[in-house]
Design a protein around this nucleic acid. Structure first.
Lengths: 329, 329
DNA sequence: CGCTCCCGTGCTGCGGGGCAC
DNA sequence: AGTGCCCCGCAGCACGGGAGC
């Protein structure tokens, strides 16, 4: 910066003023300074800037498993929203929240970097430990977190989604609905399961045994191979779309037709879900909306300077396609 | 830091030495300092540290469209490799390299942050413009970049993949192979197309007209609806697995059976590809290996302090499943 | 003489390197 | 060998001062 100042024949302070768009700088000196900056290819040092101001305009995002469609979509959405608010995003990818050392380092790093606030994509219990590392003054927003954490949180209403799916199947005349659940550690899995149970209870239907899958098609396939052998099973609510795909595959191998013999409903509405064979009826999660809301809650905290525990729920939407039909006679 | 020093009854340099694992510090003072740090919950300020040392140990990654499986897997892999090398990652997500202002800002930000090196996930032409913003001293590695950029680059050998797929289909007796290409701006699409053409030429087969899809199942479906109406078309090489899914859907709707009437091969080997109906034969890209190689090339440059133009190619692998069969009589 | 506008002089934040003790 | 001292890196803030009306 002093180089620029020397070249423009001014003090480094004037350069600083120009860079910050300070009003009281004459047009001539401003152009002179800008010229010098251009000639020297000068760039401000962000570290020094953060050090001097104490403000970073950086939002840290802690996410795990960003190869999954849901998390990656949300990170993307948060990024776009941040851009609009003139904030930068640095994303720390943790391999898994359980890998304590690694995720600890990532959070530490974001905090030390002077992030103005953090967004945790925190769909599993273990995320709470990482959050504990954050100094209490720093705003936090969780996505898919738990209410008992008492921090601002955004999530799709998974419970409502579970009910929506289950009711839709019951409405078609199915006596009950089987549920292939997601991993137990995921809050979303548990909420969907509860929604499923609630809808069954409200209809006076028995809850059948519940197999548990991962989020993968492979695990859905394994569960499907069991369900295909159970004659009573005519309606299935799968943990997500890829699990549903695995189930579809298992059914096909067992000669069970969808939707004629088995009705099936997924969760997420991944872009390719409509092109499964047949097109998958599913519960859509508006990940982009979740990202936007998360940033909104963070901005509010940045404005007030205090943590809040406000939470936002995004409504899931039923997307009807071709995997649900009336119960076979 | 001075607080810690005061509490431990030493100077702030001694604290610094302890934090940096400097050898010449007595065990007693070390424990005293560590105790003071723990009591005060002290954390070093990264900005100040970077400012003082000039080294950041941060690798910047510039990626677009991280909701796609390929890019997100590579970012993940780079992250894991970086963790092993004691480097941190900050990922800048650009919405698209064409959105000049936005991607420009992201690169600027990473540079100003003092990133030690940058990895560009640069599968499209427009990425070159972003790269031009990087000061010439900074090491760069591209993933899926172009050789003419003359920077270190890693990619899966897409050309070989295109040949692999095409030859595999020709080996089954198909007269020729149709190709549903990916977006024109993507280097990978072009290389796969060239591999396809080369394999056809080598077999003396005519190259049929080439429809172009995006990367989505929806666009694959549109192309598939055309191909399904062409009696000569018995073998299709799709731009990627999701495009292949769309093609499968279109074929099913037209009463064309896979693989009996149409043989199909995809690209990527997304985790669910084996659970399509039928299981998709495809060309696997080892994204994790690409990520590791990318970091290796970056580390080499960091060690030598100079940019290199070394490039690495990762071999694609044919994964045989159930969508390829001999040409119908 | 007061004001506004413009610009420069310290000094600060936080941590690290070289040297002296 | 173990510690402390001074100064440095880069940008910003609170001054303070000179020019002009």
């Amino acid at each position: 910066m002093s180089d620029v100042a020397a070249r423009a024949g001014v003090s480094h302070q004037t350069v600083s003023r120009v860079l910050n768009g300070h009003p009281h700088v004459s047009a001539t000196t401003r152009t002179r300074v800008l010229a010098a900056i251009a000639e020297l290819g000068y760039r401000r040092n962000l570290s020094a800037r953060v050090l001097a101001t104490g403000r970073s305009n950086v939002v840290g995002v802690v996410a795990q498993n960003t190869t999954l469609y849901g998390p990656s979509s949300m990170v993307q959405a948060i990024g776009e929203a941040a851009l609009g608010a003139d904030l930068s995003l640095t994303v720390g990818h943790v391999a898994g929240y359980d890998a304590t050392a690694a995720s600890r380092r990532i959070v530490e790093r974001l905090v030390q970097q002077g992030a103005a606030g953090l967004v945790f994509i925190a769909p599993v219990d273990a995320a709470a430990e990482s959050m504990a590392l954050v100094p209490s003054g720093l705003p936090i927003v969780t996505v898919d977190g738990l209410p008992e954490w008492e921090v601002a949180n955004v999530s799709v209403d998974q419970y409502a989604g579970g009910m929506l799916a289950t009711r839709h199947l019951l409405d078609q005349g199915h006596k009950t609905v089987w549920h292939v659940a997601g991993p137990e550690q995921w809050h979303g899995s548990r909420a969907r399961e509860q929604g499923w149970r609630a809808a069954l209870a409200e209809a006076g239907a028995q809850a059948p045994p519940m197999p548990r899958a991962g989020w993968s098609a492979a695990s859905g396939y394994q569960c499907g191979r069991m369900l295909a052998r159970i004659p009573d099973c005519t309606a299935i609510f799968a943990a997500n779309d890829h699990v549903a795909l695995g189930v579809m595959r298992a059914m096909a191998e067992h000669g069970k037709r969808i939707p004629d013999d088995i009705s099936l409903i997924g969760f997420d509405d991944v872009p390719e879900a409509g092109y499964f064979h047949p097109g998958l009826t599913t519960i859509r999660q508006e990940f982009a909306e979740v990202g936007r809301q998360a940033l909104r809650l963070l901005l509010e905290q940045l404005a007030t300077g205090a943590r809040s525990a406000e939470s936002a729920l995004v409504e899931p939407v039923l997307i009807g396609r071709d995997t649900v039909a009336a119960r076979p006679a």
